[in-house]
Design a protein around this nucleic acid. Structure first.
Lengths: 198, 198
DNA sequence: ATTGTCACTGAACGCTCGTTCAGTTCAACC
DNA sequence: GGTTGAACTGAACGAGCGTTCAGTGACAAT
């Protein structure tokens, strides 16, 4: 039977995700124990298994949810109808904003890939690839229509994503540069690296 | 007393470094046990402690050695005497070549930073910062002399290094693109991103 | 008041971890 | 050929790991 709001079950589930996300991001999957996660939620270790099959599944679902959120946010982002140069600018802006808002999940999603079982890795990797292809499609269109100039679209897609995702390794709110300023600079560098006409 | 060449001591030491490097890179520091490393060297776990104080020190020394090698290779690389644009091209080429030759050490040096004790982290971080400053100096010079155009030299240095180091996450010899071709494309993108005159 | 359900506890399982150390082996020296 | 000393073994230490599960207690439904 369904419990009333405020009963424990409706709190522990989401809190487990949050705690695992934060701890995995801070200390790494292998270094965080189920007992630590449980303590963070305010529960004994055994209780966790009411909400996840095992530690591996917990990690996998965090990563899968992140990638799903990324792809569906991109799908909802209504790119401009203009040329590929404008769409590349839109992509760069979207990428930085989305990733800045979820630093923990981003960090996990590419630091903990090697801790996934082969099956889980393949699933997450496929989602990552789909996102990469979105950028590559823009680059190829720009190459074709002449608004962008990249020697190799596949390689450029990976290089640009690496550069953009790199923001997360150093950016902190309240630093020397504002979030908007950083975004502006990165977008500018991406456009130049992709050979966009000035 | 010194042993003759061929005795065991002169083999186990270097082999330990190699094994630890390979295993840490493949499975991650936290996931590799001292027993696994020992087995890879062909020795019992206890014997490792004749060559390193503990697991943490082993990781730290691998990272420190890598950063030392990077900085001294850069110091020996005799950059061109020309303008900053030429020096940036030299830096990009150097970075890609050095990193391509040591994929394992590179991977460890930035994936395992969080597994260092605070003191060890500070030491390695300082070395990393010194390398970053080398690039920033070039960018600032280019900005001053007008051969490069970057809105913020500190930020650009981090972004360009992130892009360049990203090669290692996907490049494998024998793939679609040759090592030289990849190097050429990346150097080209770095120059464009830094606003070099064509 | 009784029953049923469900979140959760707390102890236990077998296992692996990093590290230590008394003992063994063996090449090099006198 | 006896002594030395370094390289290495193998067993042990205490601790922590992921996971299981019988039991507890609070609440909802009857």
């Amino acid at each position: 039977m369904a419990r009333k709001p405020g009963s424990r079950a409706e709190i522990t589930g989401p809190r487990l995700r949050d705690a695992a996300l934060r701890l995995f991001a801070r200390d790494g999957y292998a270094a965080v124990s189920m007992r630590q996660i449980a303590a963070e939620v305010g529960v004994q270790a055994g209780a966790i298994y009411l909400y996840t099959a095992d530690k591996q599944t917990l990690l996998f679902e965090l990563m899968q949810d992140h990638m799903d959120a990324l792809l569906s946010a991109w799908a909802d982002s209504t790119p401009p109808l203009g040329d590929a140069r404008a769409r590349l600018q839109h992509f760069a802006r979207f990428h930085i904003r989305f990733h800045a808002a979820r630093a923990d999940a981003v960090f996990i999603a590419y630091m903990e890939l090697r801790n996934l079982t082969p099956e889980n890795f393949a699933t997450v990797e496929a989602l990552r690839k789909r996102y990469e292809t979105e950028l590559e499609t823009i680059l190829r269109a720009g190459q074709d229509e002449g608004t962008l100039a990249v020697p190799d679209t596949k390689l450029a897609a990976m290089a640009l994503i690496a550069m953009l995702t790199g923001v997360n390794t150093w950016f902190r709110d309240g630093g020397r540069l504002s979030r908007d300023r950083v975004e502006q600079i990165y977008v500018d560098m991406v456009l130049k690296a992709a050979g966009a006409r000035a």
